[in-house]
Amino acid sequence: MNSRQRILLVDDNPENLEVLSARLRALGYGTTVVFDGLQAIESVRRSTPDVIVLDVMMPEMNGFQVCRAIREIGVTVPIVMLTSKADPADRFWAKQCGASVFLSKPVDPVVVVRQIALLLGDA
């Protein structure tokens, strides 16, 4: 586990951000939390994280739009879509927009953390 590795968490629900952030920090990751897509894009422009965990249903911009915008500015870090959407169409759009992994809630956060570790080459 590398404490310098930083995960950007994007979700409009503060409780979701809090519980996942607590787990990641306990494992030694640095976390940055933002509440909408515009903040996410701004954060990525300022400093590229090592992994982005992105909700889909958010005000202003949805997660697919945010994902595509992040890819369009040339950021290639892994993006995990962590969402309550679960239709095959959602998986398809996630892939189309450049997401690396699509996880549907409810999911054991151990699975989320393991996936992040795999993407970072820590597992």
Binding site: N16, S84, K85, S104
Partner: peptide, 26 residues
Amino acid sequence: AAGVVHDIRSALGLITSLAANVRDGL
């Protein structure tokens, strides 16, 4: 109906995460 399913999933997701954090000693 899809919206209701989404909201139920969201609630279950939060229940899962909160319980898992307690489970894992966080």
